[in-house]
Computed example of a mutant assay.
Amino acid sequence: MEPPKHPLPGRHGSGPALRPKTHRPPQVLGLVVPLLLLGGVELAVRAGLVEGRLLPAPTEVLSALFGLGAADVAGHVAASSGRVAIGFLAGALLALGVGALVGLSRLAEALLDPLFQALRAIPSLAWVPLLLLWLGIDEAPKLVLIGIGAFFPVYMGTVAGIRDVDRKLVELARLYGLSGVALVRRVLLPAAAPAVLTGLRNGLSLAWMFMVAAELIAATHGLGYLLTDGREMGRADLVFAAILLLAALGKLSDGLMRRWETRALAWRDSVGATPR
């Protein structure tokens, strides 16, 4: 039996392997389902199938937003966004440092990880009365609560990323004389980067969720305040307007974080990586 005249690509000495081209669907497809849902709700309310007092039509929600005025809406958005930005940065930076320490040190893991795993199980609203007692009703408890929400996903991602680094990479780096800070900077951190960046994205999402609980603490501006105000006045349109703004801001911030993640991990050659 004669050997094949054209050897399979990717074998030793047969040239470079063929990489399958991956085509991503256009991002505009992500709007199809939300637009269909909004259109369905609009038709259901107009046809009387759903009570508009409980589930307002999307056009009524937009009317409620326009009724508030651009200045008021911008003020609520700016207040909430500023709190999320400050709380997320503080919580994420602390989580990166503590997570790296726990991931690199078995002693730190034994001392700190059980405590953080227990604190992670505490619901967001359970922190509110304690923070009110400790920090009063100013901005401090709101920022601390958002920071708590951002801390744990980033901490978990950092610890998991460092622990999951292939031991062979570390052994190879040591053969080349790397140790200490150089080993961490050139091997451990790049290898752990995908898990760390995923933790950052999850932490940002949770920071937006904790922001709503934070703005229940005597807030006078913000989307959480707008939710509470709409509930107290019995206005479902205001409640849904605040929810839609939260969804839009969360999607926008996650999209920016995802773009940064794609650029930071451009060196990856994985199935989900964007083709270069």
Score class of each variant (00 low, 15 high):
Ala47Asp: 01
Ser80His: 14
Gly82Pro: 09
His76Glu: 07
Val84Glu: 04
Ala110Ile: 05
Val45Lys: 14
Leu143Glu: 10
Gly69Val: 04
Gly136Val: 07
Leu104Pro: 09
Ser124Val: 09
Gly82Leu: 09
Val144Arg: 02
His76Lys: 10
Ala85Asn: 04
Pro56Gly: 08
Val61Gln: 08
Ala47Val: 01
Leu49Thr: 15
Leu62Gly: 00
Leu101Asp: 05
Gly87Gln: 05
Ala57Pro: 08
Leu62Trp: 07
Leu107Tyr: 03
Arg53Ala: 11
Ala44Ile: 04
Pro129Lys: 13
Ala70Asn: 03
Pro129Asp: 08
Gly52Pro: 06
Gln117Ser: 06
Leu55Ile: 14
Gly99Phe: 01
His76Met: 15
Val61Ala: 03
Gly91Leu: 09
Pro141Trp: 01
Gln117Val: 05
Ala108Arg: 00
Leu93His: 04
Val73Leu: 14
Leu43Ile: 12
Ser63Ile: 11
Ile122Tyr: 03
Leu112Thr: 02
Gly99Ser: 13
Gly103Leu: 13
Glu51Lys: 11
Val41His: 00
Leu55His: 02
Arg83Lys: 04
Leu89Asp: 12
Gly48Trp: 00
Gly99Tyr: 02
Leu143Lys: 07
Val50Asp: 12
Ala57Lys: 12
Pro114Asp: 00
Pro123Arg: 15
Leu43Tyr: 13
Ala79Met: 08
Val73Ser: 14
Ala108Phe: 00
Gly40Ser: 05
Leu89Met: 09
Val50Ser: 10
Gly82Asn: 10
Ala79Lys: 09
Pro114Gln: 00
Ser63Gln: 15
Pro129Trp: 01
Ala74Ser: 14
Ala121Gln: 14
Glu60Leu: 01
Gly136His: 05
Gly91His: 14
Leu104Thr: 07
Leu65Cys: 03
Leu96Met: 10
Trp127Gln: 08
Leu115Gln: 14
Gly75Ala: 12
Ala118Glu: 06
Ala95Val: 04
Ala108Thr: 00
Ala118Cys: 13
Leu93Phe: 15
Leu68His: 02
Leu89Thr: 10
Trp134Val: 03
Pro58Ser: 08
Ser105Met: 01
Ala85Gln: 08
Phe66Lys: 06
Ser80Cys: 12
Gly40Val: 03
Leu132Asn: 02
Leu133Gln: 12
Gln117Lys: 05
Leu125Met: 07
Gly82Trp: 11
Leu125Thr: 08
Glu60Gln: 11
Arg120Gln: 07
Ser63Leu: 10
Gly99His: 02
Pro129Leu: 15
Leu111Gln: 01
Leu132Ser: 05
Gly75Trp: 14
Arg120Phe: 03
Leu143Phe: 04
Leu107Asn: 02
Leu54Ile: 03
Leu94Glu: 01
Pro114Lys: 00
Gly48Arg: 05
Leu101Tyr: 13
Ala70Ser: 15
Leu107Pro: 00
Leu94Asp: 02
Ile137Met: 11
Arg83Ile: 07
Leu131Ala: 05
Gln117Glu: 13
Val50Lys: 09
Ser124Ala: 13
Phe116Pro: 00
Pro114Tyr: 00
Ala100Phe: 10
Leu133Cys: 03
Pro141Arg: 06
Ala118Ile: 05
Val102Asp: 15
Asp138Gly: 15
Leu132His: 09
Leu93Asp: 04
Gly82Val: 13
Ser80Gly: 11
Ala70Glu: 04
Ala118Pro: 05
His76Trp: 15
Val128Thr: 09
Val98Tyr: 07
Leu104Val: 03
Arg46Tyr: 07
Val61Thr: 08
Leu119Cys: 10
Arg120Leu: 08
Ala57Glu: 08
Asp113His: 07
Arg120His: 13
